[in-house]
């Protein structure tokens, strides 16, 4: 898992090393700003949501399993 974290960190470093100018967008005058923001927002939303749900479920189940191991009477 640490390695995934490292990869992400490296990717962020690589991204931030790129010049700010890359975020300029001279060709973006054809569609409205709201539309572009909506696409960006929904992209982030759709991508993060499933991971959040799975992570949440994973943590919950782990807790349940840990809890039941410590105190088997609890789960009855």
């Amino acid at each position: 898992m640490m390695r995934v974290g490292m990869s992400t960190l490296l990717a962020f470093l690589a991204l931030s090393a790129l010049p700010e100018a890359l975020w300029a967008c001279p060709v973006c005058f054809d569609s409205s700003d709201e539309n572009r923001q909506a696409f960006l927002a929904t992209t982030i939303f759709l991508s993060i949501l499933p991971l959040g749900m799975v992570a949440g479920a994973g943590i919950y189940i782990r807790k349940r399993v840990r809890g039941s191991r410590k105190n088997p009477a609890n789960t009855k």
Binding site: L15, C28, L40
Partner: peptide, 10 residues
């Protein structure tokens, strides 16, 4: 948005 392409390339 062409800027999105940069993120997705990464």
């Amino acid at each position: 948005d062409p800027r999105m392409a940069n993120v997705f390339t990464v």
